[in-house]
Amino acid sequence: MNQRFSIDEFIKQTQQEDKGEGLFELETPRMLEVNLDGEVWAKMGSMVSYRGAIKFEREGVLEHGLGKLFKKALTGEGTALMKANGEGKLYLADQGKKISILHLNNEAIYVNGNDLLAFQPGLDWDIKLMRRVAGMMAGGLFNVRIEGTGMAAITSHYEPLTLLVKPGSPVYTDPNATVAWSGNLQPDFVTDVSLKTFFGRGSGESVQMKFEGEGFVVVQPFEEVYYSEQQS
């Protein structure tokens, strides 16, 4: 009998493994294991499984202050977070997107609001709405600035590519394909009519993000469809 496709072989190939890597582990490239002993913030709806004594709660309306509440009202459900509290193993995923784990060491990074999967509560975070692009793209664009020391997990459609930004050599990206960038960079939004039929799609097809200075920007080989666009 051919054992290659047996249930036992399937279990052997796909079963969970303890890798001893700490709080965040990549169980597979598209599944995050959180070895929870305390709290973690995660994207609303990202839990796929857990074991142990873990409770989940949606973030409180005033938990982060009126400033963030006001910005959440502007940016919509894409920023919704849940808090997992307890002890056990928690498994998170987001539409099969590839997961990257980052350990910030007193550093800051901006992450597209749709691409933030989970982070430790000790990290400071704030929602940044890109008002200058709101009129150019359906639904606008928002991101989350994370700063401090701790773990964060971000997602991308397929493999991410990191481009280094150097003085005198700006990097231009499609906003819908931009995942994250270093905390010291402040992108500008520019339009180029000559690229209108080649760059991006929809009402924002000629809009580009321009990164100048010194840092990095992460892009994905995919144009994200944002929550507010899906609802329109």
Rank of each mutant, 00 (worst) to 15 (best):
I109C: 06
K83Q: 13
K71C: 11
K72N: 08
K71M: 12
V111L: 01
I99K: 06
E59N: 03
E59I: 06
D124A: 12
T75G: 08
K68H: 14
G88S: 08
E59K: 05
N114I: 10
S100V: 13
Q120D: 07
W125K: 09
D126M: 01
K72E: 04
L69N: 08
L129P: 01
A80S: 15
G76D: 02
G113W: 00
L123R: 00
T75N: 15
N85M: 13
N114T: 04
W125G: 09
V61D: 01
G86E: 05
D115V: 10
E77D: 15
A84V: 13
A108R: 15
W125H: 08
A73L: 10
G113S: 08
V111R: 02
L62C: 14
I99E: 03
N85W: 01
L104M: 06
L81Q: 14
L69S: 13
I127F: 03
H64G: 06
G76I: 02
H103E: 11
A93Q: 04
H103Q: 06
E57Q: 09
G76E: 06
A118E: 04
Y91K: 13
L102R: 14
E63R: 08
N112G: 09
P121K: 00
K128N: 11
F70G: 02
Y91G: 10
R58A: 01
F70C: 03
T79Y: 03
A118M: 06
V111K: 00
K71L: 08
D115L: 11
I99L: 11
Y91F: 12
L90R: 15
D124N: 07
I99R: 03
H64S: 05
L74M: 07
D124Y: 03
G76K: 07
H64N: 09
W125E: 03
G96Q: 15
L123S: 01
E87F: 14
F56Y: 04
L74E: 13
Y91T: 07
K128R: 01
D124S: 04
L116R: 00
E63T: 06
L104S: 14
A80T: 11
G88H: 07
N114C: 15
E63K: 08
I99C: 11
A84Y: 00
I127R: 01
I109T: 11
G96E: 10
K68F: 04
I101C: 15
V61Q: 07
L92C: 10
E57G: 04
P121V: 00
N105C: 07
G65T: 11
H103C: 13
V61A: 05
E57A: 02
A108F: 00
G122M: 03
L123W: 00
F70A: 12
E57I: 01
N106A: 01
L81D: 10
M130T: 02
L123G: 04
G88M: 13
N85I: 04
E63A: 12
K128L: 12
I99V: 11
G67N: 10
Q95G: 13
L102N: 05
E57H: 10
V61S: 06
